[in-house]
């Protein structure tokens, strides 16, 4: 099986905190699979996710330790993304690894411009290519039918679920290798949630998904692999079925059965 990302003894410390927030994490993220991160609040799921595209670097003073290897499309050659120093390297990284946030984050511009924004940044100038890729991305995010007649309307007028799918479309348009999702449905109603879940399952044909979720059913429905985190450690990682039906660690079992967390 091809790897997309692999962390090696990865530790992370926020500024002005004594203890590391993530302690020696080793987790493989397989290509074209959905990997879910679960665990009680504050265990470091978002911190790990946000390390994968170095979005932490928006704020100064964090320290990374160990390695996060990002593999090429063939799963062969890997680079340690923690070594990137220049802004250009980080920009390239973020074009390869997209991110969807908990709250939808449409930009205050038209629906179309939301999609073309990233494309233009990546150097695409040709008008027809921009339009084509906008259409493909919106179709890919199951949003095209709903918005094709109002591409020039403000994205702020969409419903929450539509906005979230727009954010997915925006990220997908860049053809990233990996998409990171941080509780992407926790601000949405059940119907929107179902459509986003269906979308994620669809997306893995083209890319790799790493998703943080508090919803056990969601993790078991959509993920192939699951990692259970607790207090900054990766307690257990396995095939999703095993984690939910046959966990090896007592802590995992307790969490999954709702005895704590």
């Amino acid at each position: 099986m091809k790897l997309a990302i692999q962390t090696k003894d990865f530790s992370f410390t926020y500024p002005k905190t004594k203890e590391a927030t993530l302690k020696g994490i080793n987790i493989p993220i397989y290509a074209n699979k959905v990997t879910a991160l679960i665990g009680p609040s504050g265990c470091g799921k978002s911190t790990l996710l946000r390390s994968c595209n170095r979005i932490h670097d928006v704020y100064p003073g964090n320290s990374y330790d160990g390695e996060i290897l990002l593999y090429d499309n063939n799963g062969e050659k890997a680079e340690n993304i923690l070594q990137y120093k220049k802004e250009n390297d980080l920009i390239n990284l973020r074009q390869r690894i997209g991110m969807i946030f908990q709250k939808p984050t449409p930009f205050p511009m038209s629906i179309k411009d939301n999609i073309t924004y990233g494309l233009k940044l990546s150097g695409i100038k040709n008008k027809t290519e921009l339009l084509d890729r906008t259409e493909i991305a919106l179709k890919g995010a199951a949003l095209w039918e709903e918005v094709k007649d109002r591409l020039n309307n403000s994205a702020m007028g969409l419903s929450g679920g539509q906005q979230q799918r727009l954010c997915i479309a925006r990220a997908v348009a860049l053809k990233p290798q990996v998409l990171l999702f941080d509780e992407p449905t926790s601000a949405l109603d059940p119907i929107s949630t179902a459509s986003i879940e269906a979308l994620i399952s669809e997306l893995k044909n083209e890319l790799t998904v790493l998703i943080v979720t508090h919803n056990m059913q969601q993790a078991s429905r959509i993920s192939d692999y699951t990692g259970f985190m607790y207090l900054g450690d990766l307690v257990e990682y396995d095939v999703t079925e095993t984690i939910f039906l046959n966990p090896k660690e007592k802590k995992t079992e307790d969490y999954i059965t709702g005895r704590f967390g």
Binding site: N53, I55, V58, E87, I91, N92, R94, Q95, G98, M99, F101, Q102, K103, T105, F107, P108, M109, Y117, G118, L121, S122, C167, R170, A171, L174
Partner: peptide
């Protein structure tokens, strides 16, 4: 999050400020 979303799409800090935050 809006700033982070811009950065996450591969925009530089200046681009995020001038295109997204100001608007």
């Amino acid at each position: 999050e809006l700033r982070e979303a811009g950065i996450a799409l591969g925009a530089s800090k200046a681009q995020v400020i001038y295109k997204i935050v100001l608007s």
